[in-house]
Design a protein around this nucleic acid. Sequence first.
DNA 1: ATGCGACTGGGACGATCGTCCCACTTTCAG
DNA 2: CTGAAAGTGGGACGATCGTCCCAGTCGCAT
Lengths: 213, 213
Amino acid sequence: MPRIPAAERRAALIDAGLRLIARDGLAQATTRAIVAEAGMSLASFHYAFESRDAFLDELIAVVVANEQQAVLPALDVGPDGGGADGGDGDGGDHDLRAILEDGLLRYLDHLASDPEHEQAMLELTQYALRSPERHPLAVAQYRRYAELAEQALATAAERAGAAWREPVAEAAGVLVAFTDGITLTWLVHRDDAAARAAARAAADALSRMADPA
Amino acid sequence: MPRIPAAERRAALIDAGLRLIARDGLAQATTRAIVAEAGMSLASFHYAFESRDAFLDELIAVVVANEQQAVLPALDVGPDGGGADGGDGDGGDHDLRAILEDGLLRYLDHLASDPEHEQAMLELTQYALRSPERHPLAVAQYRRYAELAEQALATAAERAGAAWREPVAEAAGVLVAFTDGITLTWLVHRDDAAARAAARAAADALSRMADPA
DNA sequence: ATGCGACTGGGACGATCGTCCCACTTTCAG
DNA sequence: CTGAAAGTGGGACGATCGTCCCAGTCGCAT
């Protein structure tokens, strides 16, 4: 009812759109459903956005930009965690392994606390993957993931006093891939124990891509 | 034009449907598009299937059942591959690591040879993940993946003369998760080198879940 | 205060969706 | 040979989609 400038309306619509996609899926995110979720009239949608496609393009861009605070602190904060039992042969990078596993477990907590958000991100990726003109959006999304992973891995190595053997970007790519896979299988099975086992294996593999200082 | 019994028509429609989903995406797989791809009339669709939802349900079931020959031989055949350079400390399970890496690289070849199929499977999973009554289809799909992974891992360990420390199913779950993540990131970036690096790391992590005999 | 431009509401348009119906043709058991 | 059953074609239905239009109304600079 109150008058709202177009810029704010865009933000409110994107917010409602993401909420709707997370709850009901991308296919249910029609223009009418979006404005209903935002409590607006249908005309406001096309006053703020040229088309539904343009709306989704901007939604992806905005959501990807906001992904930072959701994942980065998951791997960033906290001193040494308790860590699982050991028994590994190599010494040295034990700390890095524990830090990485701790970060991945923290990500699993984040995933469990808001599974629909990750499911929505996955759905948006697949949407962008279709049609060549939208493919760059998916690439940008995963480049952002890689950036965040890179920061987290750099921080982890620094804290453990280790050094990545190859460029951090390579390990970051591996981390993104593993995280994605763990997310997808957890969304299917909701099996926390299996996800933790995969996280453990992922931390193990990643830690071996670095040398102790 | 020729008369075709309903059973054959069901198979032909499912075949056309999968082809269409792989090429254009699930959203474009309308009843009209499907019958056009199969070269039939629209009435034949609802003569063979009760509804589009029922059609998709059976399509998923059939496709999941046929997934066997696509993935299993990828990890199953072949003696010791060339293998990458080494430098790892631990001895013992070096063979298992190489076998697993070889199998994963073979899967990457399969993925590159028909990326749209894996993309379609991913899309079908997300479709099934929505709505509770279809969720079991996604679970069945990933249970099948886990079965195939289990067979492959058992074969690999046997060939390397190694034994899985935990039940094979646990390692199989990790393999499915890693494979899924590698698939997704490759579909986005089409970066063969990055996928191979992730495959190497995955093989490394998995091989450490077994003990040499 | 006032007028112009930004914003809103509701209704309507054509396209396309899944589904259904019915007249028709082919097949095959008896 | 014949009649019931199985399969086919095309058109139509109501619902819903994205988009558009236009008459109205509010806010704000002047």
